[in-house]
């Protein structure tokens, strides 16, 4: 019986996947995370007044993540001028390193919107395997692109996608 239940649930999921994939326009799930100040924040409130959003999952101990953020930070003014984009950075640091996040981002002077996902609830809900993992959301808050890992210069690809969005 248990097996049948599992199988039928699974097949339903597969069925949904096929159906839902065609419609596209995936939005963000509703997960409660925290701001750097410890305020609760629901992820459905992430918005940028109709402009695109870069949603980036990172951790303070993840070197490629820091490289990606530093690279985007250097170009951020340009990107904002041209596309109105906003970067929302969600740290998956757990209790060991979560308190490093504030001093680190302040010291580096990064001017992104930061959130804490201490027990990886948002990360799981977004289907993220490893950090860094970056999403682009269009003006309607729909996920239009995602990329995992970072190599030097990968930020150009992000910008290309952003410009495509702005061009639409």
């Amino acid at each position: 019986m248990k097996r049948i239940l599992i199988l039928s649930t699974l097949s339903l999921f597969v069925f949904f996947t096929l159906q839902a994939q065609s419609t596209g326009g995936k939005k963000l799930p509703s997960v409660t995370i925290k701001t750097l100040d410890g305020k609760t924040f629901n992820t459905t409130q992430i918005s940028n007044n109709g402009k695109p959003i870069i949603l980036s999952f990172w951790a303070s101990w993840c070197r490629p993540c820091l490289k990606e953020m530093a690279a985007i930070s250097d170009l951020y003014d340009d990107w904002q001028d041209q596309t109105g984009v906003k970067l929302v950075a969600v740290s998956i640091d757990d209790a060991r390193t979560v308190n490093n996040v504030r001093p680190l981002v302040n010291a580096r002077g990064w001017e992104f919107e930061f959130y804490l996902d201490t027990n990886s609830d948002f990360k799981r809900a977004m289907g993220v395997n490893d950090v860094p993992h970056t999403f682009i959301l269009n003006g309607k808050g729909e996920i239009v692109y995602q990329h995992t890992s970072y190599t030097e210069g990968s930020e150009k690809e992000l910008f290309k996608k952003l410009k495509e969005l702005a061009g639409n």
Binding site: F13, Q19, A20
Partner: peptide, 20 residues
């Protein structure tokens, strides 16, 4: 858990599926 026939279309069309 019911058979898929009994689903309203919204349940399928407007649903979000993700995974890895």
């Amino acid at each position: 858990l019911l058979s898929k026939a009994s689903f309203s279309q919204d349940f399928i069309d407007k649903a979000n599926i993700s995974g890895n």
